[in-house]
Each structure stands twice: as C-alpha cells, then as structure tokens.
Design a protein around this nucleic acid. Structure first.
Lengths: 114, 114
DNA sequence: CAGTTATATAACTTATTAGTTACATACATG
DNA sequence: CATGTATGTAACTAATAAGTTATATAACTG
C-alpha cells in the first residue's frame, strides 16, 4: 500500500480515469453513465472506479441497483498543496498572490470587498 | 507512449522520484548527489532519473564525467493547469482570487504595486 | 596509458496493471 | 417468483515497472 499521494498520482496517470473525474466534476453519475463514452468493457470501468475509490478520489453511494459515484476533491487538494513548493518556479505573480493571500488570511476587509 | 500528462502523473507516483524533484528544487545536482539519500542502488536511481527525463520533468547537462540534473517545471505547470478545473471545489477564495487575477491581467496598476 | 570515478545499460526477477470473458450478486418489476 | 438491468468479482493474459547484479562507457588523474 503506497502512501496516499503516490496512490493519487498513480490513479491520475490514466486518461480514462481523468475523463471519469472530469465527468464527475459535473455531478454524480452511475457506473453505466460513466462507462458510456468509452469503448472498453464494463468490468474495465468498474476496475478504474475501484482504483479511483481506493485512491480516495471518489466515493460511492447506493440508489436502487445503481451505485452512484461522486467526486471527492480532498486528494486533489493534496496534489495542489504538493505543487505549491514548485509554483514559484513558473508563477510570475506568485509573490503578489502570496501577499494577497496573506492579506486575506489576516482578514483585511479591503481585500475581501468582492 | 502515453500522453504527456499521463506520463507526468506516472512519474510523480513514486516517492523516490518526488524526493528527487524536491532536491532539484534547490538547484542542480549530480546523479551521485541525488542518489546519496536513498538506500537503493545507483542503477535504480539512474532509472528513476530516466523516467523523470522522459516525462519532461528534468533535463540533463554534461560537466566532465558528471551529468547534472535540472528541474524543468513546465510539466508541473501542466499539472497545475489540469487541477484548475477542480480548484473551485475546495478553494473558498477561488472567486476572489479569480477576480484578482483578472485585475492583474488587465494590468491594473494598483494591483501590481508590489 | 593505467587506474579511478561517475554514470548508463543489459539481463534478469518479481510484482503490478489494464484489459479481456465468464459468472455472480442484487435489486426491480411484470 | 421469474426475469431484466446494473454492477461487481474471478480467472486469465500481456505489458510495464521497480528493483537487483554485472558490465560497459566516458572522462579525469597520476
């Protein structure tokens, strides 16, 4: 069992799974709905969903004989946090952004006027 | 040959490779320097570096018998871009941030005063 | 140019992954 | 309750990955 971040990256390293996540970003969906756009078999989709679930990227409910899948973004947030270390290498406005976020955190009323 | 984003995620799905990237975030390093912190063999490190290079996450130079490795963040930026689709699901200040970035892009002089 | 240092490659092993087909489970409904 | 629909699991195959040891390449050094 790899660490959660490794499991997350591994799960994201497949275009089919990323497409599934993109679909789920628009709302819950059944396995059948998720499988429809792909030419692979239904069991293959089930396996992809299992990988996503074990990585913590989706959760599953139960509704009649359907097992609706739902996006869980906590792990994506972890990826984003991991990326923060490197953001300064490409984000020109990183410093200004950083300052802005610091303002927000201080609760600067002016910064929150929108 | 998978698509670049898949190759990037696959390369990141290994803690040793992420540690190598973290080290390279502090500056170029030789293979030996990169290998030092790990208990695995030198060829194993060479293979990890090959994976990182083929994913476009590092580049390599030549200096005497050393092959210095250098971080290349372009693909990390691609990951960050990919994440943007999902950021709204967790970033409370996403809207304000978005507005702020829009201001920056417009070249608002006040926003760029730092 | 012989030896040492730095790194890459080859050959191999073991484990994991993505897909398949066939089958099982579970609920819904006529 | 028999059947259809939705989904998961088993068993298998082929490809890939991560590690090993042994060896090759390439450049510096005396």
């Amino acid at each position: 069992m790899p660490d959660p971040l490794s499991a997350t990256f591994a799960a994201l390293a497949d275009p089919t799974r990323r497409a599934i996540l993109a679909r789920l970003a628009q709302g819950e969906a059944s396995v059948g709905q998720l499988a429809a756009p792909f030419s692979i078999s239904q069991p293959a989709v089930s396996k992809h969903l299992k990988v996503l679930e074990q990585a913590g990227l989706i959760t599953r409910g139960r509704a009649a004989q359907s097992r609706p899948c739902k996006l869980d973004v906590a792990r994506l947030r972890d990826v984003s946090d991991w990326l923060e270390t490197y953001r300064r290498f490409w984000d020109e406005s990183f410093d200004r952004l950083d300052a802005y976020l610091a303002e927000l955190q201080k609760g600067d009323p002016d910064a929150q006027k929108n």
